[in-house]
C-alpha cells in the first residue's frame, strides 16, 4: 500500500515557543533519515521543494484563458516543503515513518495520505 508523506514546515517559525523552535532538525538529521528510508526498501519516490517564494500558480478559466499568478505566499500556518511516497503494509508503519521524519519536529508536521488505487 502506497502512502504519501507530505512534509509541512511552520511558515512562521518566530511564533513557536522556545522548546519547539530549539527542536528543529539539522541538515545531518535529514541526510540520515533520507538514507534510512532509501535503504529500508520502502522508498518509492521523494523530492524536497524549493522555497515557496519561487512558486507560481496557474488557473485556467472556462473560456480557456490562462491566469498566472506569483505565489501562493505563506498565508497558511504550514507550507509544503517536500514529500516522500513509501510502500508499506499498513497505516501504522506509514505513521511510524512519518514520526521519524525530521520534518515532523520543530513546529512542522507530516500529513500521511494513502495513494488512491484505482485497480483494487
Amino acid at each position: 500500500m502506497k502512502y504519501m508523506l507530505l512534509i509541512q514546515s511552520a511558515s512562521n517559525p518566530e511564533e513557536l515557543d522556545a522548546a519547539t523552535a530549539a527542536d528543529g532538525s539539522t541538515f545531518s538529521d535529514w541526510v540520515s533519515y533520507d538514507r534510512t528510508i532509501r535503504d529500508s526498501g520502502v522508498h518509492v519516490s521523494g523530492e524536497s521543494l524549493a522555497d515557496l517564494t519561487t512558486a507560481t500558480t496557474v488557473r485556467v478559466s472556462p473560456s480557456g484563458e490562462r491566469l498566472i499568478t506569483d505565489g501562493p505566499f505563506a498565508e497558511t500556518r504550514e507550507v509544503l516543503g517536500g514529500y516522500y511516497v513509501i510502500d508499506v503494509p499498513d497505516l501504522d508503519v506509514a505513521l511510524d515513518w512519518a514520526a521519524r521524519c525530521p520534518g515532523a519536529r520543530g513546529g512542522g508536521s507530516v500529513v500521511v495520505r494513502p495513494v488512491a488505487n484505482f485497480d483494487a
Binding site: 503494509p89 499498513d90 497505516l91 501504522d92 494513502p114
Partner: peptide, 10 residues
C-alpha cells in the same frame, strides 16, 4: 479500510 488501519495489537 482505505487508509488501511491495521487490525493488530501494538
Amino acid at each position: 479500510r482505505e487508509a488501511r488501519i491495521p487490525f493488530r495489537t501494538p
